[in-house]
């Protein structure tokens, strides 16, 4: 019984961390209409920076500044934000798909850098030497995990409430206005690329927070944790839950993460030995089919965005491609 509960605590912790990242993506995609094809880079930046800043000194790589944990976590968020700012400044004034390509590229470059730069982050071996905060007081066992879960849940709620307020604020209305009709928003004297940059950086900072928490939980991070599939998973979570709806984002996270772990377990348990090598392959196909299927049949997700149509009767949808059949 304690085994089940302890597994549930573990599952909920990871899912809640991912939910924070999905909320960050929701601000970018759901509310602002920005396509981030490299979620994992911002998640990874947060994770690596948190461990480098908060870890103990190591002989073979940078780090070990032993910063006070909350500062290390903030440092992780800052790193993710800086990375986002760099990409955003260069791409957000261009055609929409430049951002998609650049973010996709930043994720590839990030993984490559982490895999090769041993002096920076331990290379393929990953980053060690991190002491989980309060470990001396709480130990390594169930109690620690329970307290950590409470900490993660608190942050999830904080992010959730923060984003809820943000979206209802004038800034949030501006985001939707820009998403729906950039030209109109521009004519109201607002600078769409500035507003989009703010939203993009904010969303990425939230992803950085999720990465920092993830790295804290495992007290370890390696290039294997920043593979492109994580981006796909986070996207699947958002599109299943409902882009534009924060409750949907959290719901989608639990559904997809539950499905992912369950399918992994089932395949490892019931699939023939020779097929085990292809567990990941099958799971990747499933994730891809979920993304494509949702876009084709239920693009609004399980919990659609709740809002009043901002402009009723506006004839042409600007986002529609010109090449209708």
């Amino acid at each position: 019984m304690i085994g089940v509960i302890s597994y549930l605590v573990f599952f909920t912790t990871v899912a809640s961390i991912l939910a924070i990242a999905v909320l960050g993506l929701n601000l970018q995609w759901g509310n602002t209409g920005l396509f981030n094809g490299g979620v994992v880079a911002f998640f990874g930046a947060g994770a690596y920076a948190t461990l480098i800043l908060g870890g103990t000194p190591q002989a073979d790589h940078l780090g070990g500044f032993e910063l006070f944990y909350p500062l290390a976590l903030l440092g992780g968020m800052l790193a993710a934000g800086l990375l986002a700012w760099l990409v955003g400044v260069l791409t957000l004034r261009l055609r929409h798909d430049y951002l998609a390509i650049a973010t996709f590229g930043v994720a590839v470059a990030f993984e490559t850098l982490m895999r090769n730069a041993e002096g920076l982050a331990g290379g393929a071996k990953g980053l060690r030497g991190f002491e989980r905060p309060l470990r001396e007081a709480l130990g390594d066992g169930f109690t620690y995990n329970l307290v950590f879960l409470a900490f993660v849940l608190t942050l999830l709620i904080v992010v959730y409430v923060f984003l809820g307020r943000l979206i209802r604020s004038p800034f949030g209305r501006m985001l939707r206005a820009i998403r729906e009709d950039e030209v109109a928003a521009k004519s109201l004297g607002k600078s769409p690329s500035r507003v989009r940059l703010t939203a993009f950086v904010t969303g990425s900072v939230i992803m950085g927070l999720a990465g920092g928490l993830y790295a804290t939980f495992y007290a370890f991070i390696s290039p294997q944790d920043v593979l492109p599939i994580l981006t796909f998973q986070i996207w699947a979570m958002l599109i299943v839950g409902g882009a534009g709806n924060n409750a949907g984002a959290v719901l989608g996270t639990f559904i997809i993460w539950g499905g992912w772990t369950a399918s992994g377990w089932a395949l490892s348990r019931f699939a023939p030995i020779e097929a085990q090598l292809y567990t990941g392959t099958v799971q990747f196909i499933l994730i891809g089919m979920i993304i494509v299927g949702m876009l084709m049949w239920r693009p609004q997700g399980l919990l659609p965005e709740r809002l009043v149509v901002s402009q009723s009767g506006k004839p042409e949808n600007k986002h529609k491609t010109g090449s209708r059949r």
Partner: peptide, 11 residues
């Protein structure tokens, strides 16, 4: 929209 296409192509 166009970005849904980008997204779909990802999948």
């Amino acid at each position: 929209g166009e970005l849904s296409m980008v997204f779909a192509s990802f999948g």
